[in-house]
Design a protein around this nucleic acid. Structure first.
Length: 367
DNA sequence: CCAATTTGACCGGC
DNA sequence: GCCGGTCAAATTGG
């Protein structure tokens, strides 16, 4: 509770210090006629940082006003989540069936506990079925967001015309990726899907090239981003820092609203005053995943911390050799307040690092 | 044959 | 006890 607001303050400080950096940059290139474009971007970005900061300040103010009322979804961070991770230690000895079962049960309980704390946001996606050529025949399947999902359930929901589909990341087993989503077709407009995402991807999955191409072709709104990438002088050509669904949905120009992340979110935060792209309530943003940072303007990923940069932010090129170092960095960042990803508790916890995936290199996370 | 989906059962929260 | 979410056996598809 108190902790929470402290966190928020930290985040706010981060944003502010970013703003500061940003203005310095801006100042640096202001005289240069060659950098006009850059200036514009920086200015935009600065603006959005201020918006973020304002939003957070309001949040903090709100939570101070009514300190007790809203304690459900604390996504509170780090320690809590990290520490209650199941040891899952012995790994390879399925001796007695009962113990196995017990551990499974425990695992499950942990999971659901954890899942509750995972960031969650919904995203309305309209699937434009190309054209009017096929009158009523709306849509095949669900909109592709670039990740590969595996359906694990479907349920009729009370008061909803259409059943809700439950998906989880295909790489749940291989990478312990806890990302899940629920897809529900809207009652009124069957071409609209309500997609609720939970948890960020901890797998290093990229968007499949084929699927990407295909969906890019289908989605008219998806073009700018790619240009943008070519524009970006700073981006080290690496798809590793690729976006996640959220950004994708930006491209689709769709409504994204966060949920259960903001105490008193109704106070104009999510609902009215902000259209999403300009203001990622950053507590959420940073909590969610290192790859999702400051959507600011959809075109200005420019300097805004790609994960690659983030690691460079306050300290030189950082190489993360171990996950302890990783958490170190994170907590360091928290206190030094030089990066927006302060309170990442993004599901990357040590327990998930089993020796079983040698290919995993945590340094990739921040490239 | 393997991987993904389907679908009824099961479980926890309210 | 109801409901939403997940599991897992059965089924389908490539």
């Amino acid at each position: 509770m108190k902790n929470e607001s402290v966190c928020d303050v930290k985040t706010l400080l981060n944003v502010l210090s970013q703003g500061e950096e940003q203005t310095l940059r801006l100042e640096a290139c202001v005289g240069d006629p060659d950098s006009a474009e850059m200036c514009r971007h920086l200015a935009r970005q600065t603006h959005s940082l201020f918006q973020q900061a304002a939003a957070m300040a309001r949040l903090i103010a709100d939570s101070r006003q009514q300190p007790s009322s809203n304690n459900n979804n604390n996504n509170t961070n780090t320690a809590a989540v990290a520490s209650d991770s199941p040891p899952r230690s012995g790994s390879g000895s399925p001796t007695s069936e009962s113990s196995e079962r017990a551990s499974k049960e425990q695992e499950r309980r942990e999971m659901s506990k954890k899942r509750k704390t995972l960031p969650r946001w919904t995203n309305q996606v309209r699937v434009t079925s190309g054209g009017s050529s096929d009158g009523g025949g709306v849509i095949e399947g669900t909109p592709d967001d670039g990740y590969s999902w595996r359906k694990y359930g479907q349920k009729d929901i009370l008061g909803a015309k259409f059943p809700r589909g439950y998906y989880r990341c295909t790489h749940r087993n291989s990478y312990g990726c806890l990302a899940t989503k629920q897809v529900q077709r809207s009652d009124e407009d069957p071409s609209v899907f309500d997609i609720t995402y939970r948890g960020g991807h901890t797998c290093l999955q990229r968007r499949r090239p084929t699927a990407t191409a295909a969906s890019a072709a289908q989605e008219p709104g998806m073009l700018q981003m790619q240009d943008n990438r070519q524009l970006d002088p700073n981006r080290p050509q690496e798809p590793h820092c690729d976006q996640n669904e959220l950004l994708l949905s930006f491209r689709q120009g769709l409504k994204v609203k966060t949920e259960g992340l903001i105490p008193d979110g109704e106070h104009g935060l999510t609902s009215s005053s902000f259209s999403f792209p300009s203001t990622p309530v950053s507590n959420f943003a940073s909590t969610f995943s290192p790859t999702f940072i400051s959507p600011t303007t959809s075109e200005s990923n420019y300097f805004s911390m790609s994960p690659c940069q983030m690691s460079n932010f306050g300290r030189g090129p950082t190489f993360l050799g171990s996950e302890s170092e990783l958490t170190d960095l994170i907590s360091g960042a928290t206190s030094v307040a030089n990066s927006p990803m302060v309170d990442i508790d993004f599901v990357l916890e040590p327990a998930n690092f089993e020796p079983s995936f040698p290919s995993f290199d945590s340094s990739n996370f921040f490239r």
